[in-house]
């Protein structure tokens, strides 16, 4: 299990980070949700973001593919700065896959069509090629036999694995996970986490908002703890769990590990 965390290609010196946030601030109306966020994620690194609800962790990763707009500071993803320029936003979105808490599969399309839609229409891939690619990823998330079904016919865990396959079909350089297991029944959490661990082992750059501390310990290079819109603490997994620095982190950990 722990083999994955020793392999850290991103620690190579001198390489520019694939995601960089510099002094990012964001408000919802008068309420500040992100305060002076600075973050640099290297190619192939796995970041886990945790923190109490309302701490801004979902907002943070949603800023990275511009589902949310930041109002101050800079966000650079894969060498492209996110501004109001639609071309650049769509470029970034092509390279960044996202998995949502509520799966957000397209209910009117089959599993296979969910996976092939973006490759065909955005990447301009031939249909047969896209289907081959989709089946490859559906096999990887272990549900190729469901390809012809509609999302409504699948369990939550299966739907979330389809959502992961759908994002992977765009061959993204980065994968964002926004509480991917929070809406799942307990018995389905493992099947989704297993897929995510495998993905991490394959060297994918990942940002994961989650409360699954077991997963964080297994795959995270870095763990961020956020509270009230700030990154309170950032450290490697070992340090984070054994020697948390701030009191807020300690309080959070004692609550979450207790349950």
């Amino acid at each position: 299990m722990s083999g994955a965390s020793h392999d850290r290609p991103a620690d190579r010196q001198g390489e520019a980070p694939i995601i960089e946030l510099i002094d990012v601030d964001k408000w919802y109306g008068p309420f500040q949700v992100l305060r002076g966020i600075n973050l640099a994620v290297g190619r192939g690194q796995r970041f886990v973001i945790c923190g109490p609800s309302g701490s801004g962790k979902s907002t943070l990763i949603r800023c990275i593919n511009r589902l949310e707009e930041h109002q101050r500071g800079r966000i650079v993803v894969d060498g492209v700065e996110l501004t109001s320029d639609l071309k650049q936003i769509e470029h970034v979105r092509r390279e960044v896959g996202m998995v949502f808490q509520h799966f957000n599969l397209f209910p009117h399309l089959t599993v296979l069509e969910n996976c092939t839609l973006a490759p065909i229409w955005v990447r301009k891939m031939a249909k047969a090629e896209a289907e081959k690619l989709a089946m490859q990823y559906l096999e990887r998330v272990r549900i190729p036999e469901q390809a012809g079904k509609y999302p409504g016919q699948l369990s939550g865990g299966q739907q979330q694995r389809v959502a992961i396959a759908r994002a992977l079909c765009m061959n993204p350089k980065i994968m964002l996970f926004d509480e991917p297991t929070s809406a799942l029944d307990p018995e389905m959490i493992k099947e989704v986490l297993d897929v995510m661990v495998e993905l991490a082992e394959s060297g994918m750059t990942m940002l994961v908002v989650t409360h699954e501390m077991g997963f964080a310990r297994t795959v995270a290079d870095q763990i961020l703890f956020m509270d009230q819109g700030e990154i309170v603490e950032q450290s490697d997994a070992e340090t984070f769990f054994t020697h948390p620095r701030s009191e807020r982190t300690k309080a959070f950990l004692s609550q979450i590990l207790h349950n």
Partner: peptide, 11 residues
């Protein structure tokens, strides 16, 4: 969520 999923795929 449907809008967001479609946006996130780059459509």
């Amino acid at each position: 969520g449907q809008y967001e999923a479609a946006e996130a795929l780059g459509l």
